[in-house]
Simulated assay, not measured.
Amino acid sequence: MGLPDGWVTDTPGLPRAAMLRALGNGVVRLQAATAIRHLHERAQADPATA
């Protein structure tokens, strides 16, 4: 996700639901960038199917 290992998971006593809440929408930018890169690569490989 782009954060150091244990950034949230090494917090003592923090339940899983709280870990996910702490991460929030932090993954959205990385997911969007990955999707755009993937679509761009597909379009470059075969413009007719993009």
Rank of each mutant, 00 (worst) to 15 (best):
G6F: 00
M19C: 12
L30K: 09
A43S: 13
R21K: 12
I36L: 15
L3K: 05
T49R: 07
A50K: 06
L3C: 01
Q44D: 13
A50F: 09
A18Y: 05
N25V: 11
A32F: 02
G2N: 07
G6V: 02
G24P: 05
G13Y: 09
Q31N: 15
P12H: 03
L14M: 11
G26C: 06
G26R: 03
V27Q: 08
G24V: 08
L3Y: 09
G2S: 05
A35M: 09
G2H: 00
V27H: 10
G24H: 00
H38F: 11
M19W: 10
Q44A: 15
M19Q: 13
P12D: 02
L3I: 08
V27R: 01
G2I: 04
L20A: 06
P15H: 05
H38R: 14
G6E: 01
L39N: 13
V28D: 07
A22M: 14
P15T: 01
H40D: 15
L14H: 01
V28G: 03
R42T: 10
H40Q: 15
P4V: 01
E41K: 02
R16F: 14
D5V: 12
G6D: 03
G24M: 05
E41V: 09
T9Q: 04
G26P: 00
G24K: 02
V8H: 00
P15V: 11
R37Y: 09
G6Y: 04
